[in-house]
């Protein structure tokens, strides 16, 4: 893992990653990129960020069974339905 290679705590590595992904999302907004592909890319980044928080900050990465899937299931639900709505809007 990169976090081990550069010698920082996993949560600090995740924090830096979250900040970087946020800046990418903000950049897409201020540069005025639009269209279905860009919208879905931004959505995927947001879902990835949510998963990182669930796994590393809420500790679900170390939980077995159904509880492990609480955040994943929620992200999959909203991700698929929001994608569908944007796809319909683009069509």
């Amino acid at each position: 893992m990169i976090d081990k290679a550069i010698g920082i705590r996993p949560c600090t590595f995740v924090y830096l990653l979250l900040m970087m992904l946020t800046l990418v999302t903000w950049g897409v907004g201020v540069l005025g990129f639009d269209g279905l592909t860009m919208a879905l890319m931004v959505l995927v980044l947001a879902l990835l960020k949510g998963q990182l928080i669930g796994d590393y900050y809420m500790g679900l990465k170390r939980v077995s069974g159904g509880w492990r899937w609480v955040i994943i299931a929620w992200l999959m639900l909203i991700g698929s339905l929001i994608s569908m709505a944007f796809y319909l809007a683009a069509g």
Partner: peptide
């Protein structure tokens, strides 16, 4: 908020 931010402010 991490979902709300791109959905309301960025995705178009």
């Amino acid at each position: 908020w991490i979902i709300l931010f791109p959905l309301i402010y960025v995705m178009r």
